[in-house]
Amino acid sequence: MRLAILGAVLLVLGGVAIATGILPLADAGALAERVWPILLFAVAITVVAELAAEAGVFAAVAERTARAAGGRAWLLWLFVVLLAVLSTAFLSLDTTAVLLTPVVVLVARHNGLPPLPFALTTAWLANTASLLLPVSNLTNLLALHALGFSDPGRFVALLAVPAAIAIIVPCLALLLLFRRDLARRFEPSSAPAVDDRALFWISAGVLLLLLPLLVTGIPVWMPACGAAIVLIVVFAVRRRGALRFGLLPWQLVLFAGGLFLVLEAGHSLGLTVLLAQVAGSGESPAALLRLSVSGMLGANAIDNLPAYLALEPVAGSPLRLAALLIGVNAGPLITPWASLATLLWHSRLQTLGVELRWSRYVLLGAVVAPVTVVLATLGLVLAR
């Protein structure tokens, strides 16, 4: 609810900026034209993921990976890494934080393993693995527009090496941190029965059909909306009670909409000139590191989405936009508010009774985030 209140305040401020001429109406219209497909995709993919989770798809996959691990905790953890990367890449970082986290925590507990290594894995990879595909993060979809790429393959080619580094570095840190827990063995528990097999298989089928469509170059809101409509119809027939207003990420949409308006007004007032002095210019290794670190610091100070929106105008080239994405996607591992996904993740942990003090989270992130961002940026430099 706090996010909704903040979003409402931002929308009011944006409306004042339009009414007073600070933000010209034409600029506001151009902004709306740019962001409505992104927000529509965010709504549709959230509905798809929530309903698939309600059908038991994520839980079934996680339980079967636990059995496939053969009692080896480290192998189960590797399967969780793969699930987190795939979930983040295709269904966005918020899906991983909100829906995959409780699944892996419960799987760990059912098999007598400490849940924290698996929970922290989902939190870190929800952020760092969001460099993989345009649909992985709202920042990427915004950058796709700025890059002028109509083919997702060009985005992947640009960020493939940094994305790989941004996944590997946190995983190595997690292996070192939880090496004793991951060296344990366990007795796999039996998977729970699926309540409605027809609902399960239809939901799984919709997901399997949707994932490749998200990387074909079709505007991503189209297949996402189609998948959401199919699942809504199916659930209306077989489990109507699951269709509730809470499925819609309306608070996120309200917040993002207000944020877009306020930052666009800020740029009209000269924010770009100020930030250009902070983020610098050029495409030398030092210049790209300066921009990516600026993005990381901005994300941990005010959240990754406003940090990206604020710094996007000073990026100015595909290579610099890639460096900025590294900072705002792989860098939000330090403060609780660095990304909405982190806040949602911690809320789920509290609901599940998993203890992790913010002080410990901040300390670990303060070590891992800078190393990840710097190495990923150097990977970008070497791969160009």
Rank of each mutant, 00 (worst) to 15 (best):
residue 355 E to F: 05
residue 373 V to Y: 02
residue 259 L to H: 00
residue 223 P to V: 02
residue 343 L to W: 00
residue 194 V to I: 15
residue 187 E to K: 14
residue 196 D to N: 15
residue 162 P to H: 06
residue 295 G to I: 07
residue 103 V to K: 05
residue 44 A to W: 01
residue 77 W to I: 07
residue 202 I to S: 12
residue 295 G to N: 07
residue 236 A to V: 07
residue 101 T to W: 13
residue 35 V to R: 00
residue 284 S to P: 08
residue 242 A to M: 09
residue 15 G to L: 09
residue 200 F to Q: 12
residue 121 T to H: 04
residue 268 S to Y: 09
residue 266 G to I: 11
residue 22 I to Y: 05
residue 338 A to F: 00
residue 145 H to Q: 13
residue 112 G to M: 03
residue 216 T to M: 13
residue 290 R to G: 07
residue 160 A to Q: 03
residue 195 D to V: 15
residue 364 L to P: 00
residue 364 L to H: 07
residue 30 A to K: 09
residue 124 W to V: 03
residue 330 A to N: 02
residue 314 V to Y: 07
residue 50 E to K: 13
residue 57 V to G: 07
residue 294 S to G: 07
residue 273 V to A: 15
residue 196 D to V: 14
residue 176 L to N: 13
residue 125 L to P: 00
residue 301 A to G: 09
residue 251 Q to A: 10
residue 31 L to T: 04
residue 72 R to Q: 14
residue 295 G to Y: 05
residue 66 A to W: 08
residue 158 L to Y: 06
residue 335 T to F: 01
residue 180 R to T: 14
residue 36 W to I: 04
residue 326 I to M: 03
residue 263 L to F: 10
residue 291 L to A: 04
residue 101 T to E: 12
residue 184 R to S: 13
residue 291 L to K: 06
residue 45 I to V: 09
residue 312 E to N: 12
residue 256 A to T: 04
residue 120 L to T: 00
residue 32 A to T: 09
residue 142 L to Q: 03
residue 180 R to S: 15
residue 25 L to N: 05
residue 101 T to M: 13
residue 63 E to Q: 14
residue 207 L to F: 13
residue 73 A to Y: 12
residue 269 L to S: 12
residue 338 A to G: 00
residue 313 P to H: 10
residue 141 L to N: 01
residue 17 A to M: 09
residue 97 A to R: 08
residue 9 V to W: 08
residue 35 V to L: 03
residue 106 L to R: 15
residue 69 A to I: 10
residue 135 V to I: 11
